[in-house]
Design a protein around this nucleic acid. Structure first.
Lengths: 160, 160
DNA sequence: CGAATCTCAGGCGAACTGATATGC
DNA sequence: CGCATATCAGTTGGCCTGAGATTC
């Protein structure tokens, strides 16, 4: 029991199901689940580089750029030059973006409560820990990110 | 700690990381991770309807049709009329499809072992159970599937 | 110089909407 | 008839490859 394949299929089913539900809750705001993720990352730490967003969102530079350009056109984020590194972009949430995020949060919070209600506190903690093990161990060095450290550097744990 | 959002982000990161790795391992065979999932479902139970595949793959009819048409053009699956229901399609794996699946399995098994090695047996079982709770509880009645019962019916649990 | 960050062009698989044909 | 299954047309967002510009 519990082969690697079984874990993979369970992970896939859980993610796709949740993702569909998220999409459904957000679609009336004309925002996708992935765009919501980007906005939420910016509320957690505003003013970071695109590369940093790429890492936190488990995405890639090209995809993230087009997403951010789209969000910029809607006035939800601002993309300025990084003050000390001319190569990088300093991405921030606009007031409209923050407002949009709060509206989106209201739309999606019933789903998140429903998700949380499936577990007792210990189970929830366990689940997050086990999932973190997967993303931690299987994460690839996409572009060998060394990090600019916008405000403070968070160590990139290179797996041995 | 462990809010609904935190669970969702951990789930997302774990899935996307695993999905990228799977893609990378399969790309040399010109098969996507989702196509591999379809093939693996057919090896578990061959000769089922498209609707059944849709449910098991957590997908939708339109997407699944185009995937199956693609796999049919490559000679990996066959799509015939269902013997007792003229509306349905009876999807089977061709010999070439079975061979392809075995090759794909070899390519991807190192990743699956790596995935499995992250957990002790109890953790693996726990993880699968917790993930199953998510897909079970959040699954939507996409089209209110009643099931044709290809070989035996598996009860569709309508949530109350 | 090399390396990092981002930009740009283009292609592709998957998900979706909405409408339609056909058989139960 | 209603309903279920599958099909078809078309759109979109996200992921990818590969190339290039700019800056460190």
């Amino acid at each position: 029991m519990s082969s690697g394949h079984e874990i993979a299929m369970a992970l896939r089913a859980a993610y796709l199901t949740m993702h569909r539900q998220s999409q459904a809750h957000l679609t009336k705001h004309r925002v996708t689940a992935d765009q919501f993720v980007v906005l939420s990352l910016l509320t957690e730490r505003d003013g970071i580089t695109q590369q940093e967003i790429v890492r936190r969102a488990s995405s890639d530079p090209n995809t993230m750029r087009s997403m951010l350009v789209l969000l910029e056109h809607r006035g939800l984020v601002a993309r300025k030059r990084h003050p000390t590194d001319g190569r990088a972009r300093h991405v921030t949430l606009t007031p409209a973006g923050l407002q949009a995020y709060e509206d989106l949060w209201e739309s999606i919070s019933p789903l998140q409560e429903r998700l949380l209600a499936l577990f007792d506190p210990f189970e929830a903690k366990t689940l997050v820990e086990l999932l973190g093990r997967i993303s931690g161990a299987l994460a690839r060095p996409l572009k060998r990110s060394s990090g600019i450290s916008d405000q403070r550097s968070d160590r990139v744990h290179e797996e041995g």
